[in-house]
Write a protein that binds this DNA or RNA. Structure first.
Lengths: 247, 247
DNA sequence: ATGGAAATATTGTTGAACAATCAGGCTTCT
DNA sequence: AGAAGCCTGATTGTTCAACAATATTTCCAT
């Protein structure tokens, strides 16, 4: 509503709007991991009915950004170490495949990646850490795009959103993002040159280091609760593992 | 409610129950592709409120089994050819990787696959075509499991559910399933022997043939509408492409 | 303090309501 | 007859108020 009135194209439903707003707040850090999402308060704040809000929460839960425990309500997802590992395992599968396939990819794919990498470098220079994180994710998203599948793109998008959230908990952005622009650049250049084996090797190291960093940060954050959480403490609270039907 | 009362363990919410029931009906074919899901009628039939039903529909939409057009309501998803291709593209990425990795997989993974393949053979023998289809999907699900990622498993599950639905539209089960047990078996044996290159080769052919068959069936079904659809015809009705933000 | 009971808050679910939009039939005009 | 428009009934999008069931907090008596 108060967004940009330029394009009247999209007439989002109330639910969709709420999903967007909440997703935005979660990813941008306004809503910290573990924070409770009380139905009435959020609903009145966003000026929608409790029913609509509930739909939105359900959707966000299915995106993996929110957890819902029966009769106890919803809260911003706080990832466990094992979940973070799962996310990286998934990334490895997809990105390695993408790196391999990128050797025969269209040139336009590379310009998309290049754009993201350049953005990341600028952001790091300017010390806009959150921005830097986003750019990095965009680079990897562009990498996945070479696989040419909508479904995969969409899936990867939700995956990275989860990772973004995990980052949010694990540490302060600066220490977290500093120095990664160079590694993104390195990886990108190898990909562009079509050096499969090398690309994959570098990629695996990249992911391994990144994973370790997140896990360390998470461990540290859990050990010494950074700062008072908005509501529900994110401390010893076992974040209610969602039923893992598979695996 | 009238299910099996053996395990009182799971206390599903109303929404979850509705999702399960509808998903079941869609995959089992009771609800054909293109069929309209009128809110009031479905809600009263399942004995829940319209609000609850709406939550369920939203969820099913996010699973890709239902489409919702603004102000026009929900209907069982009818896949386009290009979507089917997208599904297979995704399968290729994941299954090829899984086949590769299966060479170093735990023995227990193979027993899971073996079970599914055997079930498929029995089903084909007994001419239980739908059962056969399910077994085949279970085999491929088990293959993906070697990648060891919950998220990937879950994603693949929804992917195969979509494919199941696409099959439903594309043809009668018999012609569709006959003969595939042998190919599943062939693939499985190669995997078990750890012959990477050969496995991948056979797998790619398998997927290519399967894709072609589905696309042919779909074309045929569209050309000569099999039988009167429950409600909304699934004929020339452009099934309202869901916004493809990515790709 | 400590266990437990009463009070309060929150969730799960429903039913009814109403404006906005859609689908089909009917009228009317050319 | 055929096209343009209008009316009407269905259906969706969204809200509100209610109530039972389940947490959480408060408070009291021991």
């Amino acid at each position: 509503m108060t967004q940009d009135g330029s394009e009247p194209a999209e007439a989002l439903s109330a639910t969709d709007r709420v999903v967007d707003v909440l997703r935005g707040r979660i990813l941008e850090g306004t809503l910290s991991p573990g924070a409770a999402l009380r139905e009435t308060s959020v609903a009145t704040e966003l000026d929608v009915s409790r029913n609509t809000l509930r739909e939105a929460l359900r959707l966000l839960t299915s995106e993996g950004l929110v957890t819902q425990a029966p009769n106890k309500g919803a809260s911003v997802k706080a990832f466990t170490a094992s979940e973070v590992r799962d996310i990286y395992r998934t990334r490895r599968v997809l990105e390695v495949q993408a790196a391999t396939e990128s050797a025969v990819a269209d040139e336009s794919r590379f310009t998309a990646m290049e754009t993201a990498v350049a953005a990341k470098e600028r952001a790091e220079q300017a010390r806009l850490w959150r921005e830097a994180g986003t750019a990095s994710l965009r680079f990897h998203q562009a990498l996945i795009a070479v696989l040419g599948s909508c479904r995969l793109n969409e899936f990867f998008r939700t995956l990275l959103a989860q990772l973004r959230l995990a980052w949010a908990e694990s540490c302060d952005e600066e220490r977290f993002q500093r120095g990664w622009a160079a590694r993104d650049r390195e990886l990108f250049e190898l990909l562009r040159q079509g050096l499969r084996a090398q690309s994959v090797g570098v990629l695996l190291l990249y992911l391994e280091d990144s994973e370790r960093q997140v896990l360390d940060g998470l461990r540290r954050a859990r050990a010494a609760p950074h700062q008072a959480r908005t509501e529900t403490g994110a401390h010893g609270v076992a974040p209610l593992e969602h039923t893992p039907r598979g695996e």
